[in-house]
Structure formats: C-alpha cells, structure tokens
C-alpha cells in the first residue's frame, strides 16, 4: 500500500536543471542564441516541457527547418523522448563527474529517424504513457483495474503528470497501487532494467515460492545471475539492496507504474 507520502512527495519533487543550447551549425543568425535554462521534473517527459525551448530557438534557425520536429542530443546521442527525464539523466550522465546543469543540445535538422521515434504531438506521448500504465497493471493485477477505470480517470492521471499536480495524480494512481483481493502482493513487479544498449524486462514476483518477501537484491540476482555487485540506480539514488520489491514498486515507481532501474 502506497501510503508513505513522505517518500512519494520526495520522489515527485525531484527536478533537474537543464541548459538547452542550440546546435551552432544550425544557427543562421549572426548572433549565437543564449542558452535556455529550465527546471524539468524527473518524472515528466521531454516533449511536455520543451515548448518554451522550441519557441526560443526557432528564431535562430533557417526558415526551411523551422517546421521540422525538434530533437535533443546529449554527448552525441539523441534523447529517447519516450523515457522519463529522470531515467534519461540517470542512464546517460555520470552524475559524479558531470556538473549540473545538464547541458543538452537542441537540433531541428537531420532528425535521427533510425534511433528515435518520431512524435507529432503530445497525444503520441500520452498514448505511449497509457500503454505503459496498462502494461504495468496487467503485470500487477492482470489488467483489471486500469481497464475498469473510466476515461476521465485516465485523463486525470495524464493531466496530473503534465501539469505537475501531485494530489491530482495520486488520487487516481493509488488505486493502481492497491493490492487486489486477498493477496498482499502484486502478481508481478513491473520493472525495466536499463543497461547501456537498452532495457531488460522479466516476470518477477514480489514474493518467493517460500512466501518470503523478495528484495532488490533478489531481483538483480534473478536478472543478472552471473554478475555480482550490480548497482541499480533509480531517481538519482541507489536504493539499498535489502529494500523489498513490493514496497519499491509501490513507492518508487515512475508515473507509468514501472520501476526504471539503471544499472551502473
């Protein structure tokens, strides 16, 4: 039961300072544009927060590329917009050596179609988000709760995330975090484990066959049986290995109800 509001609040409050810079090759004006600084929530997605950035930089690019979709790049890698920002930061930036703010290069031209999806508008992001949410619910409760929800509850979830409204979001999300029936645990723990080239997923139950609660250590062991001392990072911190999976799923999941773990 996700009733530890202190943790939930702290997770929700997490924001990153980002410095957006336009790719100097794309600047057509004489003067270089000033970088654009922005505080972005870790739980949100880049397409939801970059309207102002686009508005700021669009004046400096050539008129034939102005209609193109904007894409972001960090250290020569295009940003995968369908990942939450926090996941991107944790996976891409070595926070111990790189100082904040997070400098991201903005591109209008030469969209890397082979590496990232195109997104025409925010509805694309919403549908991806909802798909993730439903997938997580299927894992947790065989998809009963999300499919029984009304359209307005889905809207409330999405708007709560988009407008950074904690109470609005959690009023609906707590239903998804409840345990159904007589079971004390989810059926499976929805998680994604990111390694360098992608993420891994596996059906992992919150409790073992012996009825003992599983911990993060158990999960990492199940996922990487041949590796020791694997460190997983989530929300910019490294949770202790003895943290129970059920609690983690309830309190440390991203809004799409997945635990996005980045292996470092």
């Amino acid at each position: 039961m996700a009733n530890d509001r202190e943790i939930l609040r702290e997770v929700w409050e997490g924001k990153l300072p980002v410095c957006f810079k336009l790719d100097p090759d794309e600047v057509v004006e004489l003067q270089q544009p000033d970088p654009f600084y922005l505080m972005v929530p870790r739980l949100s997605y880049f397409p939801l927060v970059t309207d102002k950035v686009r508005k700021h930089f669009i004046k400096y690019v050539s008129s034939d590329t102005q209609e193109h979709e904007m894409w972001l790049e960090y250290s020569a890698q295009p940003m995968k917009w369908h990942f939450p920002i926090g996941v991107l930061y944790d996976s891409m930036v070595d926070s111990d050596h790189e100082a904040l703010p997070w400098v991201i290069t903005v591109h209008f031209d030469k969209f890397p179609e082979t590496q990232i999806y195109r997104f025409s508008n925010k509805e694309t992001v919403e549908s991806y988000f909802m798909a993730c949410l439903k997938e997580a619910d299927v894992l947790k409760h065989r998809g009963q709760i999300a499919s029984n929800m009304q359209k307005k509850d889905h809207n409330q979830l999405w708007l709560g995330l988009q407008n950074d409204k904690f109470d609005q979001f959690w009023a609906v999300n707590r239903k998804l975090m409840e345990v159904s029936g007589e079971n004390d645990y989810f059926k499976y723990i929805p998680f994604r484990c990111y390694i360098e080239d992608g993420y891994r997923q596996k059906l992992v139950k919150p409790v073992g066959d012996d009825g003992k609660r599983k911990t993060l250590n158990d999960l990492l062991n199940e996922l990487f049986p041949d590796k020791d001392n694997v460190t997983a990072k989530i929300h910019g911190m490294i949770p202790p290995l003895e943290t129970p999976l059920q609690w983690m799923s309830e309190h440390l999941s991203y809004p799409d109800n997945f635990l996005h773990l980045c292996i470092v």
Partner: peptide
C-alpha cells in the same frame, strides 16, 4: 527506507 529517504532528500537538495 531511511536510506532511500535520505538519498532522495540529498538528491533533491543537490539537483533541485
């Protein structure tokens, strides 16, 4: 749990 909370608070202090 304390560990997690602490880390989160640190993170927020540091980053946010």
């Amino acid at each position: 749990r304390q560990n997690v909370l602490l880390q989160l608070q640190n993170r927020n202090k540091r980053e946010t």
